[in-house]
Design a protein around this nucleic acid. Sequence first.
DNA 1: CGGGATCCCAAGCGATACTG
DNA 2: CAGTATCGCTTGGGATCCCG
Lengths: 122, 122
Amino acid sequence: MSDTTTSQSVRFEIDTPHRELLDQVLDKWSLQVLNELCERPSRFSELRRLVPAVTQKSLTATLRRLERNGVVERVVLSTRPVAIEYRITPLGKTLRPPVEAILTWAHEYMPDIEEARRRFDE
Amino acid sequence: MSDTTTSQSVRFEIDTPHRELLDQVLDKWSLQVLNELCERPSRFSELRRLVPAVTQKSLTATLRRLERNGVVERVVLSTRPVAIEYRITPLGKTLRPPVEAILTWAHEYMPDIEEARRRFDE
DNA sequence: CGGGATCCCAAGCGATACTG
DNA sequence: CAGTATCGCTTGGGATCCCG
């Protein structure tokens, strides 16, 4: 059970650091923000429009967290009145396939999930 | 709500029901519980040992939620003193590949993430 | 425009006690 | 063993105000 063993079994341990990483990157707003930034760089106010349910505070926190984890980049554009743009990083792009896989799953099995819920609730 | 744009891009909308589903299935404890149940059916007390950090209350709530969404099954075994076993369902098994993808990502890029954090924190 | 600072409430979760 | 019930703290997040 030594943590440093290089076990390449198909099964992954979900230790605290990995769980915390996923919590920071797969949380409520991050998925949607990443989804938008994968499409195109956006400014703060644009993101607020693209993700209408998010508040300013939560969006700020989400962007900081994503920036800290290296998946999003905060770029200060030296335009006339400085503008600030958020971009997906190369590291952030590597997150796209697995996120897409999980979104695909959600869309594909949503009917089954909803039926399961109906059966459970009665 | 209804976007009139005909975008058949690879991109998925993350609407409220889909986001809530992912919240219920990818949350803190669910990933670990699913990970264990994919290995083998387990009883309540076994799960508590396998996922030591979870409290009884949270484990109960997690199992109920997973059961409601149809990915976990609660089976009452008619042994001498009745035993209760939790099993992954066929629907739950479909969740394995995307979850594995995200775990693989976490393990693969953890070093990059940690370096990004160090750079950000200074 | 892109936030920071504050207040404040509801939800989440741990701890504890009890039950069939 | 497999929970339910209750309490009380901690935290996340919304709302609001303000600032460079």
